[in-house]
Simulated scan of single mutants.
Amino acid sequence: MKIGLVSDSLAHLGFEEMLDAAAAAGVQGVEVNTGNWSPAPHIDLPLLVQDAGARARFLAAFERRGLELIALNANGNQLHPVTGAAQSQVLHDTIRLAGLMGVRTVCLMSGLPGGGPEDRTPNWIVSSWPPETGEILAWQWREKLLPYWRDLAVLARDHGIEKLCIELHGGQLVYNVPSLLRLRQEIGPIVGANLDPSHLLWMGADPMAAADALGDAVHHVHAKDTWLNAAKQATTSLLENGPQGDVAARSWSYITLGYGHDERWWREFCYRLRMNGYDGWLSIEHEDVMLSRLEGVRRSVQLLNAVAPAEPSDYAPPSI
């Protein structure tokens, strides 16, 4: 496995400074955020789509530091009933740019539409009651998600993309293992998971079991941890909508690797990934409001260096 970094983890730095810091921290590659929910401080997406010289300079900055460009990330809600078209354009341009630069992996969300044709806000169905929720969910998949993703997969294949990596995240139609596998069955193996354990943890799922259940549907991994605040969960549950900056008051919070789950947990997670055939990138996504971004990245790299298998297996059973 190789250790990477999501560029927004160091969003306070300019492009060249971010790459310098990534190299100094010891990562081997960077996943670049291109827009939508990210302000994309490290990339000019329209310019790079249009200008071959700009693309060459962009890639040369990675090469000078011995870094790989892991993936492009266009996380957002391209199915939003009001802003979806604009967000979809960013995603489509991200796919085009990835193809132009020889990047075969694009990270994204599945999207979440409204609950009906007249809605102006997204509607995340998380319960089978009241009775109309089933009708809403069926409409969202049939009328919005599946038609969109069929077209998106065609666009991605036409531009040489091999992996569309969906982050299993609350507030999206695809947010857990069954919904990811359902979409993958409908669209094909270009669809896979960006397996971020932090989201599964706050939703009450088990990332180890998810790795087992997904198997070769794990296309990418975000390395991010979650601290589960048992004292608050006891009264509020894991359904948390308090301010993210008030860690002590929340039932869960994103946190630097090792501070929510210890080194032993991360060692087993990496081993389970390899058991199920994944030997790709562990892309650090730092969103801990309590630690500085540079310290959080450095500590995360240190932990992953201690637990992630770095070399391919060469074991051969002794002959009898």
Rank of each mutant, 00 (worst) to 15 (best):
L97N: 02
A52L: 02
L67S: 10
D158H: 09
S198Y: 02
E268Y: 12
R150Y: 04
G215T: 01
V32M: 02
A153T: 09
L112E: 11
V90G: 05
V191Y: 13
H261T: 03
L19W: 08
S313P: 05
A52P: 00
D44M: 12
L13G: 14
H222K: 09
S251G: 11
D93T: 07
R267A: 11
L146K: 06
L91P: 07
S198R: 01
G215M: 04
R150H: 13
D44S: 13
D206S: 12
E162N: 03
H159N: 10
G160D: 14
A248K: 14
S319D: 08
Q78W: 05
L214W: 05
L164M: 11
R64P: 00
W281N: 08
S9C: 12
D93V: 00
Y271T: 14
S251C: 08
E268M: 13
A61I: 01
D20W: 01
G160F: 15
N305H: 11
D196G: 04
A156G: 02
M208S: 00
N176S: 14
D246S: 08
V6H: 15
Y259L: 03
P309D: 11
M275D: 09
D151A: 13
Y175H: 15
S128N: 12
L303I: 00
I95R: 02
R250W: 02
L239P: 00
W139Y: 12
Y175N: 12
A316V: 03
A217Y: 02
S110A: 15
D288V: 04
L48V: 06
A98F: 10
L294E: 15
G242P: 05
G170Q: 07
R65A: 10
H159Q: 09
L152D: 02
W129T: 13
R150G: 10
V174F: 07
I320C: 07
Q302W: 01
W266D: 01
D20I: 03
G260H: 02
D158K: 06
L201Q: 13
L180D: 02
L112Q: 08
A209K: 13
V191A: 15
D93Y: 02
K232S: 03
G296T: 08
G53R: 11
V154M: 11
W124I: 03
F58T: 06
G245E: 06
G53L: 04
A308P: 04
Y259Q: 12
G114E: 10
P130S: 11
D93R: 14
I136C: 08
K2S: 10
T121E: 13
G215S: 07
L168Y: 10
V6L: 14
A316I: 11
I187P: 08
I95A: 03
